[in-house]
Simulated scan of single mutants.
Amino acid sequence: MGDNGHSPTMCLRRLGHEMRRLREAAGKSIHETSAELEWSTSKISRLENGLTKRPDVQNIRVLCAAYGVTDEQVIERLVTLAREARRPGWWTKYPDVFRSSFVGLEAEASAITTFELALIPGLLQTADYMRAIMRGARIEDPAEIERRIEARLERQRILTRANPPRYWAIIDEAALIRPLGDREAHRRQLRRLAETGPMEHVTVQVLPLSAGPHPGLSGSFVILDFPEECDRSVVYQETATASHLLEEQEDIDRYTALFRRLCDSALPAEDSIAYLSALADRL
């Protein structure tokens, strides 16, 4: 997080949205701005899409001048965003582990809503569970495994920090009964989930196998909501080979409705915690 408490990834995203808004308000296309400043179109589009990792403060001032922005407060706000976007987040220590912008966005979220089809959600995994997943993925180097676990445990601190996000997870029962690691590791993982019961900001629900076919069978997803109205929610999906961030309102609405339908089919939170405790005891 930056010194102002904001994620640098989110600052970069806000900066890009603001620069696009100012360009469009000035009635200019990317090609027109590119020709005027003798910049490449990719330089402008990368900034607007939040892909410029270290935005140049002087470039922000040049763009403001090109767009006719004269309000010094507006300019200084944009410059501050650019400066904060250049600060390293804790996750930048692990570029080999976190390859997308998701963790930087997650760090700013006020609400995290997730459905998991095949695995325990990452923010609720024990170290032994993580280790078993990595071995299943044929990661053999012990040092690499421990480094990845270290990064993931650091990520989990979001749920125990001051002012944590509201976290709501629905987990397919198949992910809970699948053995990963030895029996004791499996039991500890289930108890870790059950221990979320008293946490007021965390809700865990189990989607039982008895629910039959359900709309979540197409895959897992995460919805991130943010505290500032200007920051649009995002949907995150991950596969074995790629990750995707969806930002269109149509996508947000579709996945929000999907989560509600899954919630209706899942066990209530209290019954889910009882189920998790009983399952752990039976192992």
Rank of each mutant, 00 (worst) to 15 (best):
R54F: 09
W39K: 00
N49V: 14
F98Q: 00
E72Y: 00
E84I: 01
D71S: 03
E24Y: 00
R46K: 12
W90N: 05
E38W: 00
P88Y: 12
F102D: 05
F98S: 00
F102E: 04
V79T: 08
Y67Q: 02
A82W: 15
D96E: 09
S45C: 09
F98Y: 11
Q58A: 07
C64I: 05
E36A: 15
Q73H: 10
K43D: 09
R21Q: 01
L105A: 14
F102G: 13
T70F: 02
R46T: 13
K43Q: 11
G27Q: 01
L37V: 06
D96V: 02
R54W: 05
K28Y: 01
P88L: 13
T70C: 04
R46C: 12
K53C: 14
A107I: 03
V62P: 04
H31E: 15
L63G: 08
P55A: 14
E38G: 06
N59D: 15
T80N: 13
A65V: 11
N49M: 11
V62D: 13
L22Y: 04
L47V: 11
R77A: 09
L105G: 14
V97P: 06
R61L: 14
S40C: 11
T92R: 10
L78Y: 10
A85L: 13
S100K: 00
G50S: 08
E36N: 12
V62Y: 12
Y67T: 05
P88I: 12
S101N: 12
E106H: 12
A25S: 10
R83T: 01
A66M: 06
R20H: 03
P88N: 13
Q58K: 07
M19L: 14
D71H: 00
T92H: 14
Q58D: 14
R54K: 14
G89D: 10
E84P: 04
E38C: 03
L51S: 12
F98V: 00
S29L: 02
Y67H: 03
E84V: 00
V103N: 02
L78I: 09
L37K: 01
N49E: 06
I30M: 10
P88H: 10
R20G: 01
K53H: 15
R61I: 07
S45A: 15
D56M: 10
T80V: 04
S29V: 00
W39S: 03
Y67R: 01
